[in-house]
Nucleic acid binder design. Structure first.
Lengths: 114, 114
DNA sequence: TGCGTATATAAGCAATTAATTATATGATGA
DNA sequence: TCATCATATAATTAATTGCTTATATACGCA
């Protein structure tokens, strides 16, 4: 089995980023589904700037990437990031957050927006 | 394979704790070797209170435990902690920090103190 | 072209964090 | 019992973080 090793500095940086419940949940969701900003605003019941700022931090270290689709900007996990295997192993130990997206669908919020 | 799942809250708390280079390195070292406070002071070239405070945080969430041996207090990983499997998987992806202890031995600092 | 929607960025502020300095506690050994 | 060593705790301070409010940008549509 290939053992990937990550430097301590980089690991600490990534863990610090993920050591925030909002960002950790975002990344867990994004690992399975692309999402746009307004969905996160709904899910976390917080302000749009707050969400944007969290996403920016994740983007700055390359964990997620953005892509414009018409009016919306979708975020997705950057699987080509050299540290993706590191976080993937971590995410696998977290409970699925699919129910959060399901709630949006039930509210109609997911469809309306994206 | 048994899949252990950890709640998001708890995971975020632990990741935040480990998202500090000093604490992450401490835990990585402790995963293989017990250490006393004065060794960490040497390794990290920082003040004793600073080291004590980091250890306290790790102790407060149960990741490490302390044990007095005569004059010294040794810290070790708490393998019975319910979140140990979570961090173990993470630690396995980090480079060994044995060289740091080796340096102490070469300096004689390890033996003198502990 | 002008308006509404989605998102990003900037500035300000309150809360949290990590380090320092000073002091307390507890064990050892003369 | 007193001095010393190892460690913990407390108080202070500077730096960092995350949120809010306000504003800017960029797209889609009438």
């Amino acid at each position: 089995m290939l053992k990937t090793v990550i430097e301590m500095d980089k690991a600490a940086t990534i863990l610090k980023l993920l050591g925030d419940k909002t960002r950790l949940t975002m990344v867990k969701i994004l690992d399975k589904h692309d999402c746009c900003v307004c969905e996160f605003v709904e899910i976390f019941k917080t302000s749009q700037p707050s969400i944007s700022q969290h996403l920016r931090k994740l983007r700055d270290v390359g964990l997620v990437k953005e892509e414009r689709r018409g009016q919306w900007i979708f975020y997705s996990i950057n699987k080509t990031n050299e540290y993706y295997p590191f976080i993937q192993q971590l995410l696998d130990q977290l409970p699925s957050q699919d129910h959060k997206l399901k709630e949006l669908e039930e509210q109609g919020t997911r469809i309306v927006c994206c």
